[in-house]
Design a protein around this nucleic acid. Structure first.
Length: 909
DNA sequence: TAAGCGACTTGAAGGTAGAGCA
DNA sequence: TGCTCTACCTTCAAGTCGCTTA
């Protein structure tokens, strides 16, 4: 499959999706394989970077290329991630104690040894770095105060001291790791090369200059209002397509059946804050306010199937209008519900037709019930035993709970990782009683098997619930959802996204996260901040508890927040994506991307000029921007050492790219190979312009693998520059822009107006896939993919046989019909129709096969939800008569209700 | 001015309801 | 009717980016 890369400005961007994919999958499922190489980085902290920059100015001479080669060679053999923390040391101590581990854990030890080797190597690297610093060439565009230098010296000394300690520890370890490293590394290399041979999906070349239609686009965009995202109404008129039948309908009132006490109490208060909300609308022109009175309508019916239901709301409107602005699924009377299998009707708050407030406030009234806490721990039955060193031990409740977290994960890859085990054991010991801690010294002697079996039994039991049990559970969950799952915001009932507080468990960091396995503690009401309006009913904490604080901050969108203990990060309870607050932000995001479309030529011209700039920082910025624009790379903020070592554009290191003057018949090829967000591997071979290539050579000059490629750049300065080019522009906007424009162009290119609906859907999925490839949205091959493909193939073969048979039947029937009576002619027609039906079925199956296979390693959902302007898809559906349900499921339709309403068949991004 | 924090978006994994099939 | 499989949905980790603080 070939897809056009909208931003590529010269040659073919040979992204190896399949080859890449296989590596990625290995990386994810075999634990270390792919990530290992990437962990090989010698992450230079920001202080190091600063230090490097400083020395840049002092130095003039250069390293010989041979010494660099040596460095590179050695670094690749040793592949390491060097993070010096006292916790590491502790873990290493633990590790030394656990000598008699099972085979599985021996492997982990190897990995730890591997790390110690890396540590040794690190001090070498540090020496190299300071050598290099002495030799590096200078730009002479920065000065630093002597005090900052002092600080840096101190921190460097500290680093060295740490290295010294580490080395001492390392001496006690086995020294066979280097050969293992080499083996591992060569395996990785092997994989890379084999994956390269696999089938490729390439991004085809694309002209850098915008295609002719851009001018038309621009003209159209210019015609939009200039004042921000409300300008998105360009095509609102065309929304009549689906809504004309409702346009003049009055607002519907709430169903009188609503009797739930909770519901009523909320509803009663709605009147009050509805008043508040309408007061808050005082700045809205009268006409608009009048219009907004009509905002609450049912979800636009898009399909003809839905049209049958139109009469129902019309009947409703005759009833007295009370609390008319609050309409939700829950408040709908049974009459308004559709038959099983069809969508429930919903009342829709058409916030996108209201004027947006620009004063930074997010709401005037906010009321909710607070978050739902995880159920308390239920101790194990007495017959489920935990054993240590073969002896039965009754654990204290707290220790047992944490042991249970581990037991549940025994089958998971995580428990084969030393970091995970060490972190778990360390945190587990903290919750043990002193007697337990005294006794339980070695994780490998712990037998969690019975606990694991018990949890598996529970899980089986849950799966085998009777119909009645399932129904009861469902009803209970619906009750909970009803009570905690909604809030009242400015007179409207809106769904909350995540009202449940995260339950305790073991932290599952992705990739090689240094904190994986740590205990995520139970969150208590005393940890939780509540945010709601002063005049709302303040949520009650669970009995016997109190909230940490109750705030009334209407400049933020969260309802509750707490700080999790593993990474000390704030967690929030926020609204569902279908809410106004989220939808408005989403809409704004796509309007910013459309604004970028208007000035993208200018920006591209500018960064091309900057490739020749005198200042190194300007050149680096320009090359980075080129990558962000053309390859849709993420910005790449700096990360702390206690996070997985992943990078984005600005944080790329020398080791993450390879330069080839010529590769596979193409000139000036840059090979990217790094771990990005979520430790997903990014591998791409990109032919670039000569000037970019030369600049990269310059940026890499006299640098070690572990050095930053763009050492004069960070995301903050890049974004500041972007803001100068266009208000609201950040690195992230390029990703949205390129994703959306790619979809639009691919749809144009791949859609045959005369094709059948299944064929059009395949075209849509292919366009979507092109974007997913551009954004590197990968997924593991679904479990049982090959099995299901085999089944599908068998089905196709059976269908083919049926078609063959039917063809023979038709041949025979045609002969008979020629000879004979009306009856025989009728029989012949019938057989022909049957044949057509079978052929259609066969075609559908074949399309399904193609689609499924092409999709096996590509995740379409992420781009669809986050990067593709939904109006492009909606307009395509409307233009080509494809039911929107074929493209968006119910949740997605809820999220993109605004787009479904406003985009007509002529919408252009 | 770098570092840290807060608020939000983006992202893949994993569990499960229910569609589809024998 | 029971079983299989997958699309959907939830979960929570990991990004981005703006603002504040030291």
């Amino acid at each position: 499959m070939s897809v056009e890369n909208p931003t590529s400005d010269n040659d073919c961007d040979s992204r190896k999706v399949n080859g890449n994919k296989s590596e990625h999958v290995n990386g994810m499922h075999n634990g270390y394989s792919s990530s290992e190489k990437h962990k090989s980085s010698h992450k230079s902290s920001s202080k190091d970077k600063h230090r490097d920059k400083e020395r840049d100015h002092k130095s003039s001479s250069k390293h010989s290329s041979s010494s660099r080669d040596k460095e590179k060679h050695s670094s690749k053999n040793h592949s390491s991630s060097h993070k010096s923390s006292s916790k590491d040391k502790e873990r290493e101590k633990e590790h030394d104690k656990n000598k008699d581990r099972s085979e599985k854990e021996k492997d982990n030890k190897d990995k730890d040894r591997h790390r110690s080797d890396k540590d040794r190597h690190r001090s070498d690297k540090d020496r190299h770095r300071s050598d290099r610093d002495k030799h590096r060439s200078s730009d002479g565009d920065k000065k630093h105060s002597s005090s900052s230098k002092d600080k840096e010296h101190k921190s460097r000394d500290k680093d060295r001291e740490n290295d010294k300690h580490r080395k001492e520890k390392d001496k006690h370890r086995s020294d066979n790791s280097s050969s293992k490293d080499k083996e591992k590394h060569s395996k990785h290399k092997e994989k890379s090369s084999s994956s390269e041979k696999q089938e490729k999906i390439k991004l085809e070349p694309e002209e850098y200059k915008e295609i002719v239609t851009t001018n038309n686009l621009k003209q159209e965009i210019k015609e939009e209002s200039e004042d921000g995202f409300m300008g998105g109404n360009t095509t609102v008129s065309s929304c009549d397509y689906s809504l004309s039948q409702f346009k003049d309908e009055p607002m519907l009132e709430m169903a009188p059946e609503e009797s739930d006490e909770q519901e009523m109490s909320l509803a009663d208060r709605k009147t009050a804050h509805k008043r508040a909300a309408s007061e808050s609308q005082e700045d809205i022109p009268l006409l608009q306010r009048k219009k907004s009175k009509k905002k609450i309508k049912r979800e636009p019916s898009y399909n003809s199937e839905d049209e049958e239901e139109e009469e129902i709301p019309k009947k409703k409107k005759k009833k007295p209008e009370k609390r008319k602005s609050i309409k939700t699924e829950e408040s709908s009377s049974p009459v308004k519900r559709k038959k099983k299998g069809e969508e429930e009707e919903q009342e829709v708050w058409k916030w996108w037709e209201e004027k947006k407030k620009d004063d930074g406030t997010k709401w005037q009234f906010l009321e909710h019930k607070g978050p739902l806490f995880a159920p308390p721990y239920e101790p194990l039955p007495s017959n489920v035993k935990f054993r240590y060193d073969g002896k039965e031990i009754r654990l204290s409740e707290e220790a047992e709970e944490v042991a249970g977290f581990y037991a549940r994960m025994l089958d998971h890859d995580y428990t084969t990782k030393a970091t995970f085990n060490n972190n778990f054991f360390h945190d587990w010991k903290k919750v043990m009683t002193s007697e337990e801690a005294k006794l339980i010294k070695d994780l490998s002697k712990c037998d969690f098997k019975e606990m694991q079996a018990y949890f598996q039994m529970l899980s089986e039991k849950n799966k085998n619930r009777t119909k009645e049990e399932k129904a009861a559970l469902k009803a209970k969950n619906e009750e909970i959802q009803k009570e905690f799952g909604f809030c009242i915001i400015d007179g409207h009932k809106e769904k909350i996204g995540n009202f449940r507080i995260e339950p305790p468990g073991l932290f599952r960091g992705r990739g090689e996260h240094p904190k994986m396995g740590m205990l995520k503690k139970r969150v208590m009401p005393e940890d939780v901040l509540i945010n709601c309006s002063k005049d709302s009913k303040i949520p009650k904490p669970p009995s016997g508890h109190k909230w940490k604080e109750v705030k009334h901050d209407n400049t933020v969108t969260w309802l509750a927040s707490w700080t999790e203990n593993v990474q000390s990060q704030a967690k929030y309870v926020m609204l569902n994506p279908s809410s106004k607050l989220k939808g408005e932000k989403d809409w704004q995001k796509y309007e910013t991307a459309r604004k970028l479309h208007k000035c993208i030529d200018k920006i591209r011209d500018q960064y091309r000029l900057d490739w020749k700039a005198k200042e190194m920082r300007v050149r680096q910025r320009a090359v980075a921007l080129y990558f962000i624009d053309r390859l849709a790379l993420r910005a790449g903020n700096e990360k702390d050492d206690d996070q997985a070592d992943t990078v984005g554009c600005c944080s790329l290191r020398v080791e993450h790219i390879e330069l080839h003057k010529e590769k596979d018949g193409k000139e000036f090829v840059v090979v990217f190979d790094f771990l990005g967000k979520d430790s997903i591997r990014y591998y791409n071979e990109v032919p670039v312009e000569k000037r970019v290539f030369k600049n990269l050579e310059l940026f890499m000059e006299n640098k070690k693998d572990s050095d930053d490629l763009f050492d004069r750049l960070n995301t903050q300065t890049l974004n500041e520059h972007l803001k100068d080019l266009m208000p609201g522009l950040t690195a992230k906007v390029f990703r949205t822009y390129n994703a959306s424009i790619t979809l639009q162009r691919q749809l144009e290119e791949l859609t045959d107006p005369d094709a059948s609906v299944p064929e059009k859907i395949l075209a849509y999925n292919r366009a979507n896939r092109a974007v997913a490839i551009l954004c590197n949205h990968q997924r593991a091959v679904p479990k049982g993919h090959s099995k299901s493909m085999e089944a599908l193939k068998e089905k196709i073969q059976a269908k083919r046989d049926q078609v063959d048979e039917a063809e023979e039947d038709v041949r025979q029937a045609t002969k008979d019909a020629k000879r004979g009576s009306v009856k025989e002619k009728l029989a012949c027609d019938k057989k022909k129709k049957a044949l057509d039906r079978l052929r259609d079925q066969l075609k559908k199956l074949e399309l399904q096969e193609t689609d499924r296979d092409e999709n096996k390693t590509i995740a379409l959902g992420t781009s669809k939800l986050n990067y593709l302007d939904p109006r492009i898809s909606v307009s395509w559906c409307k233009k080509h008569g494809v039911p929107i349900e074929k493209i968006y499921n119910k949740t997605q339709r809820d999220k993109f209700r605004w787009a479904i309403d406003m985009a007509g068949p002529d919408y252009i991004f």
